[in-house]
Design a protein around this nucleic acid. Structure first.
Length: 152
DNA sequence: GCCAACGTTGGC
DNA sequence: GCCAACGTTGGC
């Protein structure tokens, strides 16, 4: 099993939105970055655990845990001209963009904030904390996963 | 709202 | 294939 972190802006789709979805499950669509696409298409497996991270908000940080329940499949929001993530270069016969489905495992008891994570020497080298990191989907090592959970 | 960092695009 | 211009991300 592998561990991941996925970012979402709570104004767009937050942890409570996931909690309120049918079966607490949501397709993670709209990602238009090749590195993130490759991970969703090729690497994420059913049962993998995911930190749900709130970005671009007053207090950015990890707010919950989700789980991959469906492995990579084409993101058909790219085919819909009315969708904000429409991409005319993605062809249904040769899809450019992929998504996975994730289901809520649980909300954390509290937000583990970015500023708190930055202060932990144990997390040195974590991708989330690297300068200029903009990936919305990234792997988390087992050690970092366990350490972060111990902060809760 | 600012701006640094980074990815993508497209002319050459 | 290079690289300048542009758009986006995301913390602050």
């Amino acid at each position: 099993m592998q561990y991941w972190l996925m970012k979402s802006e709570p104004d767009e789709f937050g942890i409570d939105d996931l909690a309120n979805r049918p079966d607490q499950t949501e397709p993670w669509d709209g990602v238009r970055n090749y590195q993130a696409r490759n991970m969703m298409r090729d690497e994420m497996r059913r049962g993998d655990q995911v930190f749900f991270y709130h970005s671009s908000t007053r207090e950015p940080g990890i707010v919950g845990i989700a789980e991959v329940v469906r492995e990579g499949y084409p993101d058909d929001t790219a085919f819909d001209p009315d969708d904000p993530h429409f991409d005319p270069r993605s062809d249904p016969d040769n899809p450019r963009w992929y998504r996975v489905d994730v289901r809520l495992v649980r909300k954390l008891q509290r937000t583990i904030t970015l500023s708190e994570l930055k202060q932990k020497p144990e997390l040195e080298g974590m991708q989330l904390l690297r300068k200029g990191n903009r990936l919305s989907v990234m792997p988390v090592s087992e050690e970092h996963w366990a350490f972060i959970l111990s902060l809760e």
